[in-house]
Design a protein around this nucleic acid. Structure first.
Lengths: 290, 290
DNA sequence: AACGATACCTGACTAAAGTCAGACATCATG
DNA sequence: CATGATGTCTGACTTTAGTCAGGTATCGTT
């Protein structure tokens, strides 16, 4: 009853029946689940037939038939791929978009219903983020992105907010040496975002300088994704990118109010060095030779 | 990407694929899912055929056939119900128990695997409890139990631990007027536990006295179940039980370190009264006439 | 131009799930 | 003990999902 495994299994049971309920609400639109799934995959922007097949784990014969049935319903159109006439791309027709919107409405209603009956929304959402991150752990994709992209800006915003909470004196970006975006773009550096499904859950910046080293900046992992060794993965990716760019020396600064960060750096072979800049926030400085 | 509904839906996607993975591991035992589900329902103590059918949402014809196939495999035996020969009860044979244990092992392994890959087990489990409670909210059953039962003792233990965390001076049961179990049993009083699936998630005690009133004691709601208005349901149930027992006046004591409790009492028509006992912990006293 | 690889499609099949009407025994009730 | 209700079972059926072996058109490469 109270041991960890029972608790996980209680969660499984609860969630299985909730998932089943959503599936049956989908069936209410008079279309088998397989076809509904394909329609939704297309609606969510997956156009390549092979991509959809792969995503949904379907046999190519089955996929072909489901696509055909959606075409017969007038919901989907397919055409040959521009660069490769063997491949096919699918897109929704006007009717298809309407039908897709109806499925979206069902999903949204279900999600809203779940949230509405709970007076502690934020706690519930945080729990969902945590579990979704844990379940999709091996599917977290580290992607290089522009530091000005929506995803990167979201991560940075969360990062600054967390520093504000954890530093006694708060945190004001404008007082810190906010790295210029172009220093975190190739070929001077790069910016890496960890994406879990559609949600950014971590980031790290590699910032080029003109002083014979590059800096690691803005390492952040969403609270929901902590404990999954994502910080390590991000640092590894940043180091790999640095090597690719021919960088041989890395430095970073951090603050002793973030002990888990310093702990991570030490465990990954960084060594502490004296202060190398005059930023008011950091009080710990590290270096690593590649 | 970041709005609440998207977060819920990301959670849904993550959990759908995890559930699918468990289902396919079940298929690995060479039996269709339907039959496996019936076998597991029986293994978990559901013996009445109609009960299983209802629980799994099966058509009676389908149910009958699945049961037959399990019988043919030698995993299950059925016989007529003692009191009503129309009804049938199913139970596992020796082989059936072995097979059921194999499914249990699969489920446990999956649960352990999930926990193992996460370094913050307790946070993950708390998140699972929270979500399972939210999803099964309408299925929370308030059950009268003996205050010495395993479930009741678990609730009380959690309750004392929480008081210890929330009172500045800590909490020591032996210093408090720990109610005698027989005062919280009919006909003097009762003890009600809120069960979500197999997990106790809240409790309340109604304690009879010889002073012309009864007391509400030990109102507790598991952190994972807060925000679901369970405290209110428990209080309602306790008042109902009091009315049944012919009690016309209720009293309770609480502490101002638990502001949400005082808030609940006030909103349910309790009024503050002067101290009516010498327990060292409470500093707020309430009364309600039924 | 010829080759194997690839992307998708079709036909033929099976397994699983689910539906429905009716049969049968048993029960509660007057 | 007749009657209608209940719980289970059987037979006949449909739908959905999934598999597999070719088949066709196209691609990249030599």
């Amino acid at each position: 009853m109270l041991d960890p495994v029972s608790r996980v299994r209680r969660f499984n049971r609860a969630v299985t029946s909730a998932v089943g309920a959503l599936d049956s609400s989908f069936l209410g639109r008079g279309r088998p689940l397989g076809a509904a799934r394909v329609l939704n995959a297309i609606g969510h922007g997956r156009s390549d037939v092979a991509e959809i097949r792969d995503y949904l784990g379907l046999d190519s014969g089955l996929m072909s038939r489901l696509l055909r049935s959606l075409e017969d319903e007038g919901l989907v159109e397919t055409e040959a791929h521009q660069d490769d006439a063997r491949r096919r791309v699918a897109r929704l027709t006007r009717t298809g978009r309407r039908e897709f919107a109806a499925y979206e409405a069902l999903s949204n209603t279900q999600a809203e219903g779940l949230l509405a009956q709970h007076s502690q929304r934020e706690a519930l959402l945080a729990a969902m983020d945590l579990i979704a991150s844990a379940l999709t752990r091996e599917r977290v994709a580290l992607e290089e992105m522009d530091p000005r992209s929506e995803q990167a800006r979201y991560c940075l915003g969360e990062y600054y907010a967390e520093l504000g909470r954890r530093f006694k004196q708060g945190f004001d970006v404008s007082l810190s040496r906010d790295p210029d975006a172009k220093d975190m773009r190739r070929p001077r550096g790069c910016f890496i975002v960890a994406m879990s499904d559609t949600l950014p859950i971590g980031c790290v910046g590699l910032k080029g300088t003109d002083h014979g080293y590059a800096e690691i900046k803005r390492l952040w992992v969403a609270p929901a994704a902590r404990g999954l060794r994502l910080g390590r993965r991000l640092m590894d990716a940043a180091e790999r990118a640095a090597r690719e760019l021919g960088i041989t020396l890395l430095r970073l600064d951090t603050n002793s109010a973030l002990p888990e960060a310093a702990q991570l750096y030490r465990s990954m072979g960084w060594r502490e060095i004296p202060r190398f800049n005059d930023d008011p926030y950091p009080d710990l400085f590290f270096e690593k030779r590649l």
